[in-house]
Simulated assay, not measured.
Amino acid sequence: MSFSQERLYQVLLAPQISEKATYVAEKNEQVIFKVASDATKPEIKAAVELLFKVEVDSVQVANVKGKVKRFGRSTGRRKGWKKAFVCLKAGQEINFVEGGAA
Score class of each variant (00 low, 15 high):
residue 39 A to I: 00
residue 83 K to D: 03
residue 98 E to V: 09
residue 67 K to H: 07
residue 96 F to Q: 09
residue 35 V to A: 01
residue 67 K to Q: 12
residue 26 E to C: 06
residue 78 R to W: 07
residue 68 V to F: 09
residue 29 E to K: 15
residue 46 A to D: 01
residue 55 E to I: 00
residue 47 A to Q: 06
residue 56 V to T: 07
residue 20 K to D: 11
residue 9 Y to T: 07
residue 72 G to N: 08
residue 17 I to D: 05
residue 82 K to L: 02
residue 67 K to C: 00
residue 81 W to P: 03
residue 33 F to K: 02
residue 19 E to D: 11
residue 90 A to V: 06
residue 54 V to N: 08
residue 58 S to K: 06
residue 74 S to L: 12
residue 85 F to E: 08
residue 12 L to D: 05
residue 81 W to H: 10
residue 61 V to L: 13
residue 95 N to S: 10
residue 1 M to H: 11
residue 97 V to G: 12
residue 8 L to K: 00
residue 56 V to G: 14
residue 30 Q to N: 07
residue 10 Q to S: 14
residue 20 K to V: 01
residue 50 L to I: 08
residue 30 Q to K: 11
residue 47 A to T: 00
residue 78 R to V: 05
residue 90 A to S: 12
residue 20 K to Q: 11
residue 64 V to Q: 12
residue 71 F to M: 10
residue 19 E to N: 07
residue 78 R to C: 12
residue 70 R to D: 12
residue 63 N to Y: 13
residue 37 S to E: 12
residue 31 V to E: 00
residue 16 Q to P: 04
residue 33 F to E: 05
residue 77 R to G: 09
residue 6 E to T: 08
residue 85 F to W: 07
residue 51 L to T: 10
residue 77 R to W: 06
residue 45 K to L: 10
residue 9 Y to N: 14
residue 66 G to I: 04
residue 74 S to K: 15
residue 2 S to N: 11
residue 95 N to Y: 09
residue 12 L to V: 05
residue 35 V to S: 02
residue 29 E to H: 15
residue 86 V to C: 06
residue 86 V to R: 01
residue 36 A to F: 04
residue 22 T to F: 02
residue 15 P to Q: 08
residue 20 K to I: 01
residue 7 R to Q: 08
residue 52 F to D: 05
residue 30 Q to V: 13
residue 78 R to N: 13
residue 41 K to S: 03
residue 84 A to G: 01
residue 76 G to L: 04
residue 6 E to K: 13
residue 28 N to A: 13
residue 34 K to H: 08
residue 59 V to M: 05
residue 56 V to W: 09
residue 32 I to C: 07
residue 29 E to R: 14
residue 6 E to P: 06
residue 8 L to E: 02
residue 43 E to T: 08
residue 9 Y to F: 12
residue 38 D to R: 03
residue 43 E to F: 04
residue 69 K to W: 04
residue 92 Q to L: 01
residue 35 V to F: 00
residue 51 L to W: 04
residue 92 Q to T: 02
residue 13 L to D: 11
residue 23 Y to K: 14
